[in-house]
């Protein structure tokens, strides 16, 4: 029983972080219609910056630096690559390949700058809380709070503000939105900025518990984000966050029943099963259109 509770604690922790991955990927996909693989490089780059700076300038300024990097990175991809390619009429496949290219170049650049190996955050955040044989680290306490706060903020803005309605409109029908006299560019950029800025926040939640970061951890994060998107349903931010949470939670709790070497296979099989039964995802109404 102890093991199950411990795995559940770990699952809530991982799920909270994966929820942010899901939200980030879904928000950027919904507003740009781009499979933003380069998000992987933005993620690992910002995490590496946090790790590198935390010991010299302190954790909070380092996080701020990571957020700035991620935001600029995300905006750079959109303004420098996806936007121009789209204006030139490039097909979605071309944009996806460009995005993958950015990831690979980014990984290599980060590897040159920070070295290829995994780094951990060397900041003392205090020991874990041990209650009834269950170990709960500070990061594990913090992560669900941050996740609920970030997802809650995003949903509040989306559904309760003028700006949010514009975002919804952009997601729904960009051309129709322009016809209302609203410029889509700034709104799209704001969404890309927000979606990118939450990546280092998620990374720090992981780093605080001793999880490492290397230039090569980006693509798995994108994969989790994309799976969350499919699982939650296209164009549903809440769905993607819930999808991400479920992936993290199930992946951990499943270990009560299966050996850890089967963890990945189990998660992907479950994902496939859900998608086969409900192709529109849990909260989605539409199939993801193949626009390649």
């Amino acid at each position: 029983m102890n093991l199950f509770l411990q795995l559940a604690v770990n699952g809530i922790y991982a799920g909270s972080i994966f929820a942010l991955f899901g939200l980030s990927f879904a928000l950027i996909f919904a507003t740009t219609k781009v499979w933003h693989f380069a998000q992987g490089a933005v993620y690992s780059g910002s995490a590496l910056i946090v790790v590198a700076l935390a010991t010299t300038i302190g954790l909070l300024p380092a996080i701020l630096a990571g957020v700035v990097f991620a935001t600029l990175g995300g905006l750079g991809c959109q303004a420098g690559i996806y936007g121009p390619l789209r204006r030139r009429g490039a097909s979605m496949l071309v944009i996806v390949m460009a995005s993958l290219g950015v990831t690979i170049v980014g990984e290599n650049l980060l590897s040159i700058l920070f070295g290829p190996s995994q780094k951990t955050l060397l900041v003392d955040v205090g020991g874990p809380i041990i209650a009834g044989g269950i170990v709960i680290s500070r990061a594990q306490l913090l992560a669900p709070i941050i996740a609920v706060a970030v997802v809650g903020l995003a949903l509040f803005v989306l559904y309760r503000t003028d700006f949010g309605r514009k975002v919804q409109a952009l997601i729904g029908d960009e051309e129709l939105m322009q016809l209302q006299g609203i410029a889509t560019g700034p709104i799209r950029m704001a969404c890309v900025a927000f979606g990118s800025a939450i990546l280092p926040i998620a990374a720090v939640m992981l780093l605080l518990s001793g999880t490492g970061v290397s230039p090569y951890i980006g693509l798995p994060v994108v994969l989790i984000g994309a799976m969350s998107l499919f699982l939650g349903g296209i164009n549903s931010m809440l769905g993607a966050a819930i999808g991400g949470f479920l992936i993290g939670f199930v992946e951990n709790v499943a270990l009560y029943f299966i050996p850890s070497s089967w963890q990945a296979a189990f998660t992907y099989s479950l994902f496939l099963a859900i998608i086969l039964v409900r192709p529109t995802g849990l909260l989605g109404r539409r199939l993801i259109q193949s626009s390649m």
């Binding site: 093991l3 770990n10 995994q118 170990v135 999880t211 090569y216 050996p259 850890s260 070497s261």
Partner: peptide, 20 residues
């Protein structure tokens, strides 16, 4: 006996099973 993938950076689940 627990394993992790080379790309993994979080070993919480495996460590929890070992601790148990």
């Amino acid at each position: 006996i627990e394993s992790f993938r080379a790309s993994d950076t979080n070993y919480g689940p495996q460590v929890a099973k070992i601790a148990a």
